[in-house]
Design a binder for these strands. Structure first.
Length: 567
RNA sequence: UGGGGCGUAGCCAAGUGGUAAGGCAUCGGGUUUUGAUCCCGUGAUUCGCAGGUUCGAUCCCUGCCGCCCCAGCCA
C-alpha cells in the first residue's frame, strides 16, 4: 500500500495467531517473511494471495519481507520474467525496499553447505541415472532400496562433487543426494537429490556454475540466510517440511525458520496453474499473459481492476488450510466496491438507437452539468450537451414491454438522466427492425426543476448524436463456462470448457464528449451499465478502446431472467 | 491398500470443554434522477457420520466416510 500508516491487525487466521504467539513469547523480536516466485512465468491472483499474506503480515507486525527470486533452474527461467514480476508486485502496492534477493546470490554458500553435508557423511554422489534412481525409490506403498553408491567414502564424495563443480562430468551423469532413509514412508526423505549437473548458462550467474541446487536444498537455506522467521508456503509442500527441517539441522545454518503451509487459491470458472496459463497463451486462446480475461495481475490490471480491489479480495477470502473454491462474484464484487468509490461517472451507449425529439428546436443545444460522482463532490462536474437527436441503448426500449419494465416503450415515458422526461410517440422501422424513435419532451421536467405529479419510474442514459464520441468497447466475461474447467473431461482437458462468449467487441459505441480526453487505464462508471477502463495497449486518443471491467449489479436482468426461466 | 493434510450455512471463514464471530451470496424492506450505491432486517437447535468420556463436546477419545497432496536430476 502506498500509505505509510500501519495497517491495523484485524485479520485473524492461524498464521497470524502463530506469529502473535511467537512475538508475545519473545521467540522473535521481529518477524521476517519472503515472497519467493520462480522467474518462469507471470504472477496471477493466486500469487496475490501469497504476496498479500507475506508482505501484509510483515507490515502489520512491523517486520520485513524479502522479495526473493527462486532461480535455481536456469533451463526453465528467464530474466524477462523478473521485471514483469517486480512490476506486478509493485502495482499490487508492495515495497520490498532493498530486500530484493535471488537464490542464486547464495550459490557459493549453498555449495559450502553441501560440502559440509558430505563431510558429515550426510550426502553422497550418486552414479545411478535418473531412471535407476526412480526405480530404487520404491513406490507409495513399497520402501525404496539403497543405492550401491550410497556408501562411498567422504573423500571420494568430496572429490567427485568438486569435479562436478569443475565441469568434468556430463549433464545427468551424477547428482548429489542427501543420505536420509530409503525406506521412509515420506518419499521426500528417500535420499532426495540436492544438486544436478546442468551445463547451461544461468540468467544471473552466467557460466560460473554447471551444477545447480534443487528447491528442497535451496529454499530452507535461503530462508535461513535471510533470517526468515516464518516461511509461508502452500499445502503441497507440507510433505517437504521434514526435509526442510532436516537440512537446516544438519548444516550450520544461521537460524531455523518455521515453515507453515496454507491452502492455495481456487476460483470457480477459472484456471490458475502456471502450466494451464501457459497453455492458454501458447495455444492462442487468449492474446497473451495480459489478456483482460486472464486472472494474471497484468490481465486484471488491463481489465481495469484497481490494485485495491485485488487486495480487498485477498482480505475477503482469508487464509486457512482447507480446500476452497471461491465464487467468481467475490472477485467481481471487490472491483465494484472499489470502483464505486473512485470511478468518475459518464454516459455511454453501447448499442445505439436513434431518438428524435420532435418538439425540441432543430438547432438548439443545451448543456447539463452533472457531478462526476454522486457522493464525492470534490471530483467536480462535467458538461453533457443535449440536442434534438440523441442515442439511447437498444436495451432501454421494448416494443412489447414485459411486466415491470420501467424503460421506454410506445406511448410510455422515461426520464433521460440529468435531462428531460420524454414520451415515445412513434417507432420507425426499416425491414421490420426498429431504427428510430420519435419522441416528445416535456420542458417543465428539466433536471433540477420541480415537476410535481411527474413520477417517472424509469431513468435511462443517452448521448447527443452530434456531440458523441465513437468508441470501441470490449465486453469481457469469464473465460470459462464451467465452474471447474476440465473437471468433467476424462483427460482433464480444460480447453473444451472455454467460454465462447468471453469477449464481445462492439465498435460503434457512443460516449459523452467528456470521455474524449480519457487516458490509458482511466476507469469510468458508464452509468447504469458497468465499469470500463481505457485499454492500455490498443486505445488511441482518436480511437478510444474501453474494456469492461465488470457490470453493475443488475437486479432487473435477474428479475427478467427469472421470469423467462419460468416460461 | 504407505505417508501427509482437510471436512463449521450456497461460497469463504473465526471459534472454544459451557451452549456457533464476520464477510460474500440469497431473500425481504427503506432511501435514491444510475433497476447502481447506501441503510435496515434475514439463515446453523447445529459444526462429515457413528459411538464413547463428561453435569455439559463443534472443541477430548475411538471407529468410519468423503475430498486433496506426494513416487521430477520442477518449484
Amino acid at each position: 500500500m502506498s500509505d505509510n500508516n500501519s495497517t491495523p491487525v484485524t485479520a485473524t487466521d492461524f498464521i497470524r495467531n502463530i506469529i502473535r504467539e511467537d512475538l508475545a513469547s519473545g521467540k522473535h523480536q521481529q518477524i521476517v517473511t519472503r515472497f519467493p516466485p520462480e522467474p518462469n512465468g507471470h504472477l496471477h491472483i493466486g500469487h496475490a494471495k501469497s504476496i498479500h499474506l507475506n508482505f501484509g503480515v510483515a507490515k502489520e507486525f512491523s517486520g520485513k519481507c524479502f522479495m526473493r527470486f527462486d532461480d535455481t533452474n536456469p533451463v526453465k527461467e528467464d530474466e524477462q520474467y523478473v521485471e514483469g514480476i517486480l512490476k506486478d508486485v509493485r502495482w499490487l502496492g508492495y515495497d520490498w525496499g532493498k530486500s530484493q534477493t535471488h537464490a542464486s546470490d547464495y550459490f557459493e554458500q549453498l555449495y559450502e553447505f553441501a560440502e559440509e553435508l558430505i563431510q558429515k557423511g550426510k550426502a553422497y554422489v550418486e552414479s545411478l541415472n535418473a531412471e535407476e534412481i526412480r526405480e530404487f525409490r520404491g513406490s507409495l506403498t513399497e520402501a525404496g532400496k539403497n543405492s550401491p553408491y550410497r556408501e562411498r567414502s567422504v573423500e571420494e564424495n568430496l572429490a567427485l562433487f568438486r569435479k562436478m563443480r569443475e565441469g568434468e562430468y556430463e549433464d545427468g551423469s551424477l547428482v548429489l543426494r542427501a543420505k536420509i532413509d530409503m525406506s521412509s514412508p515420506n518419499i521426500n526423505l528417500r535420499d532426495p537429490v540436492l544438486y544436478r549437473i546442468r551445463k547451461v548458462s544461468h540468467q544471473r550467474t552466467a557460466d560460473k556454475w554447471c551444477i545447480y541446487p534443487l528447491y528442497d536444498f535451496t529454499h530452507g537455506l535461503s530462508d535461513s540466510l535471510e533470517g526468515v522467521t516464518h516461511s509461508l508456503c502452500t499445502l503441497e509442500f507440507e510433505d517437504h517440511r521434514p526435509l526442510y527441517n532436516w537440512i537446516l539441522a544438519e548444516v550450520s545454518a544461521p537460524c531455523l525458520p518455521r515453515q507453515i503451509e496454507f491452502s492455495r487459491l481456487n476460483l470457480r470458472y477459472s484456471v490458475l496453474s502456471k502450466r494451464r496459463l501457459i497453455q492458454l497463451v501458447e495455444e492462442g486462446h487468449v492474446e497473451g499473459w495480459d489478456d483482460p480475461r486472464m486472472l494474471t495481475l497484468s490481465g486484471l490490471r488491463r481489465r481495469g481492476y484497481p490494485a485495491s480491489a485485488v487486495r480487498l479480495f485477498c482480505e475477503r477470502i482469508g487464509i486457512s488450510k482447507s480446500a476452497n473454491n471461491i465464487e467468481m462474484n467475490v472477485l467481481e464484487d471487490c472491483a465494484r466496491e472499489e470502483l464505486d468509490k473512485t470511478a468518475p461517472r459518464a454516459m455511454a451507449v453501447l448499442k445505439p438507437l436513434k431518438v428524435v425529439i420532435t418538439n425540441y428546436p432543430e438547432n438548439q443545444t443545451e448543456e447539463f452539468e452533472p457531478a462526476r460522482h454522486p457522493k464525492n463532490p470534490e471530483m467536480g462536474t462535467r458538461k453533457v450537451p443535449f440536442s434534438r437527436e440523441i442515442y439511447i441503448d437498444q436495451d432501454d426500449f421494448r416494443e412489447d414491454p414485459p411486466p415491470k419494465y420501467f424503460r421506454l416503450s410506445p406511448g410510455k415515458e422515461v426520464r433521460l438522466r440529468y435531462a428531460y422526461v420524454i414520451r415515445c410517440d412513434e417507432v420507425i422501422y426499416e425491414n421490420d427492425k426498429v431504427v428510430e424513435l420519435r419522441c416528445t419532451y416535456d420542458k417543465a421536467t428539466r433536471s433540477g426543476a420541480k415537476a410535481e405529479g411527474r413520477k417517472v419510474k424509469g431513468i435511462i442514459h443517452w448521448v447527443s448524436t452530434q456531440h458523441a464520441v465513437t468508441t470501441e468497447i470490449r465486453l469481457y466475461d469469464r473465460l470459462f463456462s464451467a465452474p471447474n474447467p476440465g473437471r468433467n473431461d476424462p483427460e482433464g482437458n480444460f480447453i473444451n470448457d472455454l467460454n465462447p462468449e468471453s469477449v464481445e467487441i462492439i465498435s460503434d459505441c457512443k460516449a459523452e464528449p467528456e470521455l474524449s480526453t480519457a487516458n490509458p487505464e482511466d476507469v469510468f462508471q458508464f452509468e447504469r451499465v458497468g465499469y470500463f477502463c481505457v485499454d492500455a495497449k490498443d486505445s488511441r486518443p482518436d480511437a478510444l478502446v474501453f474494456n469492461r471491467t465488470v457490470t453493475l449489479r443488475d437486479t432487473w436482468a435477474k428479475l427478467e431472467q427469472e421470469h423467462s426461466g419460468q416460461n
